[in-house]
Amino acid sequence: MVPLSWYMVLALILIGMGAYGMVSKRNLIRILISAEIMANGVNIALIALALYGPFFTFTAQALVILVIAVAAAETALAMVLMLLYHRRYRTVDLGIPVTRTEEVS
């Protein structure tokens, strides 16, 4: 059986990569992908701890299922909000000081 620490190391690497992407990227869609990678790492950690735990419950699996469904709703709302951001600022990059007044004038 694969040791528990291997799974935890994999989850840690995925969470670290997600944190790196969330800080260093400017594209909003790239930041969304980073958040989903972090969610995947957390899911792996939860399922692994549930399997290797001293007694077995379905709580961790239910939590992971809830996380996946919330990620679906969150991605839908995030993409639609990104469309509105693009509508207003003509880009999906962060940190560009372009306001609506400049665009109209």
Binding site: S24, K25, R90
Partner: peptide, 27 residues
């Protein structure tokens, strides 16, 4: 213009260092 990543490439080295430091500290 979502695929237009020229700004990202131009701006990234400093933020890349910050991101590396933060993710390594998280780990």
């Amino acid at each position: 213009r979502a695929q237009d990543s020229t700004l990202e490439v131009l701006h990234s080295p400093r933020m890349r260092k910050v991101g590396l430091v933060l993710s390594i500290s998280v780990v």
